[in-house]
Design a protein around this nucleic acid. Sequence first.
DNA 1: TTAAAATCGCTGGTC
DNA 2: GCGATTTTAA
Length: 822
Amino acid sequence: MDARRYSRPIMSDPFEYDEDDGWPAAPSGPAPAYPGPGGNVAANAAPPWLESLNEAQREAVLAVDGPVLVLAGAGTGKTRVLTTRLAQILHERRAKPYQILCVTFTNKAAREMRERVADLVGPATEGMWLGTFHALGTRILRRHAELVGLKSNFTILDTDDQIRLLKQILEAERIDEKRWPARMLIHVIQRWKDKGLTPDRVDASDAGEVANGRAIAVYKQYQERLQTLNACDFGDLLLHNLTLFKENPDVLEQYRHLFRYILVDEYQDTNISQYLWLRLLAKKGEVADEPANICCVGDDDQSIYGWRGAEVGNILRFEKDFPGAKVIRLERNYRSTPNILGAASGLIAHNEGRLGKTLWTDLPEEGQKVRVRGVWDGEEEARLVGEEIEALQLKGYPLDEIAVLVRAGFQTREFEERMITLGVPYRVVGGPRFYEREEVRDASAYLRVIAQPADDLAFERIVNKPTRGVGKTTMQAVHQAARLEQLPLSIAARRMVETDELKPAARRSLTAILDDFDRWRRAAEAVDHIELTETVLDESGYTAMWKESKKPEAPGKLENLKELLTAMEDYDDLAQFLEHVSLVMDADDRAQGPMVSLMTLHSAKGLEFGTVFLPGWEEGLFPHQRAMDENGLAGLEEERRLAYVGITRARERCEISFAANRRIHGSWQAALPSRFIDELPPKHIEMEADRGVYAGSGGGVAEDRYGFMYGGGGGSYSGGFGSRGSGLRPGVPERAGTFSQGGGPGFQRMKQRGLGSRAPVIEGQADYIGGDKDTDWGEGERCFHQKFGPGTVVKVAGDRLTIEFDKAGTKTVVAAFVERPE
DNA sequence: TTAAAATCGCTGGTC
DNA sequence: GCGATTTTAA
């Protein structure tokens, strides 16, 4: 056998070889000439990786035949099982790398998986079909694009493009965009696609009154437009696969035959269309109805993506879908202390319809109890968390072992500001992805127009960016002509400038940019894609636009454009690069040095930290009101799973907090402690008042969890308010809607106790603590801050500078975060 | 075409 | 109460 095969690049096409019988044959027994994994593990020796696994893990790794569901609780070594299983299959030579399909949800997961398998078996992993659902779907779709009415160089649209396209359709259909916003309709269409529904299969009753009852028609038109544009949105990548497989059984048969082993990560997050895709592929080619060797790994308790189409039902139904499936539970937790585990388990036990797992650990030490703390408001909450982080930092605790996990993105701001004031390095995880950034999208739009003159959406995006006198009026005329003659915009525009339909000025500008594109297309033939991009960004005036811009983000944008050019070096040509921009490109978090992580609970899934802070556990915020309003009990249970995910991120320390008052959308609202706090098993938690209150409350705090709030009397509070057993819970809270306006009983009592008045005093500390380090900053000096932009120093206290920012107001920050303006 | 004014929306966010 | 987007006026 040809050794060359095993060193092919990852995206190589297995169909290109093994031409003899049309399809790569898999060995039924040990393959004779297959090189051992990594070239150094003898074929028959027991592989070293099995020894360090526990019994359940080993079972999951070794049960390679037939359908297997691995229920892997938080911290039970799920990824380890998956990677080892892959290594085992390769090691036993049960399949060649390209006969294995391994699906993940994120590129990051795919990358990690590939690295870890490679660590075990070396280069034998090359050629594996390992990637995200979308990347693998794209790979298959490009091969057979004609069969679903596309060309194989189709473009992949992102949300911006989708909305722009839909807006055009709504306008043409004369559907009032005020009443039926494009954002909402695209969401509806997306949900249909998640369910594997093409326009003809959507039930009319499902569409209801949406878009005046024309939702299905709009969906249909949207799909037609995509087809003429030779484009797909993300949902199509799988939906077209389903159509392809259904209408071409021979093609499906090929892939069924090809994929001898299928592995799926995070199975609880699959949507219907992903599920159907897997189910189609997971049949043995030779024996039509026999389920193949499919192994799904997941945790129903960590299903937190229902809102974007994920169906927990998929994992709950696995045994029915694949009769005779083996279900293996990984319940031994290697991450958290018994107290943390106990708190999390007690909480999640309140959910119904679970597959059920009992996590255990044999850690001898109980560890710290989960600390639950009530505070006056969000500011105090942030301050206390900040103080603790500072104390940990002082003790030499590594900052990258600390995370603040919040329910909603806006909550990070308060903590961010606190970190800035304290001078604690931090990072906010999960900002906009690299390819979603304005400048990167603009640059790719230029390249897309060059590569695909029919790409109207890209053309529109940059035709007047930078402004070059091709405005709305001009484009409207071009649009009309294009629609009339069924031509792409750039072609219609070219025809138009040859007539005198346009005003001379507009005609001149439009001709200029069209000529530019012609020139760039010719250049594309001659120079490589990097040089081409440089030329385009330069000659179009795009770079100049940002150079001249005075916006604080402008230098960053130029920086990103440079980074884009560097990133392009990894790709062979323009087409390859463009695919990766939309599908694979990550924001690189080249974080330097250890930092505290601030992020949402959603983005924390899969991570772990020594210490985790979980602020904002208040009714309405967490569980979020909208989750409950829109999805009732199911919504509430998903929120509870989110809480479970949060707690189980912690290894040794977990601190939950809630505030009595919080500012939401600008106005102050009184808040009740989250019902999840009531649901935590008391023996694993430690309820605490903040110090000022604690001193004066005369005991009872530990007994009565709300004693400090409602007075030290213990259990005597009334008003059916935040209490257990008051008949309010579970289910929809009595105070349906939103938070009550400030002034509930708790609010009043707290105010009387003088709780709120302490806040400004402590706030002032920032000015005089930590002030021995001198800086060379002087009052009145101009400066620049990464986040707040330019400003003037008004006060210097050690290394703390009070700065009046031009845009962001007055703030006190650590000098190290401030630069001199250029 | 640009700048100011009004309006919207506001849970999570991969590909 | 803020920021982004969209409408309106100049």
